[in-house]
Amino acid sequence: MSTSVLLIDDHDLIRQGLSRAFERSPDFNVVGQAGTLAEGERMVHGMAPEVVVIDVRLPDGSGLDATRRLRDRNADMGIVVLTMYAGDEQLFAALEAGASAFVPKDAPSEDVVAAARHAAVSPRSFTAADLADAMRRRMQPSGPQLSPREKEVLNLLAEGLGVSAIARRLFISESTAKTHISKIYDKLGAGNRAQAIMSAIRAGLIREVSITA
């Protein structure tokens, strides 16, 4: 029995190329093609295909948002996200939206078919050619690295606590607190509390803090 596939992409030639690629493999059957999200989602609900191949950018919205909606309604549908964008952002967004596979558009059509095959079998796992590199890139530190203790101290600094208050809060001596603070200043290249907080925000070490002029 062949797997039913629905293609959602606003470029006719892309859909045509992919549809021919699926037709070449006997285990697939393209049941429909759509050029917009609205049309595509309507067809998904009407035809209940086993695999949906969807582009990230469509004229009436984001394919990633649609992926999230499709995944919410159906946990067992294979979803292959296609993209022309470079950058890990899209890959991780597809992963988080619940896609089963992620394929860039420079890859040969066989890759898309292979991804669809994977998606049909295990829709709730995720595969992408660049996944390992992307994970490695994501895990690499980009800015100054603070120890967990230093992060705690930094957060208390951002709350506006003084040295002795920080020491009391963390059950450490004042001199230890001072050492932590001066290390934080060193790592952040800051000369004082305000500079430290500013560069910590910039490095993404603390989320938000109200600064009064």
Binding site: I14, K105, S109
Partner: peptide
């Protein structure tokens, strides 16, 4: 997109 679709045609 056009170049990508030519790629698919060559695949075929």
């Amino acid at each position: 997109q056009e170049v990508a679709s030519i790629g698919y045609a060559v695949d075929e």
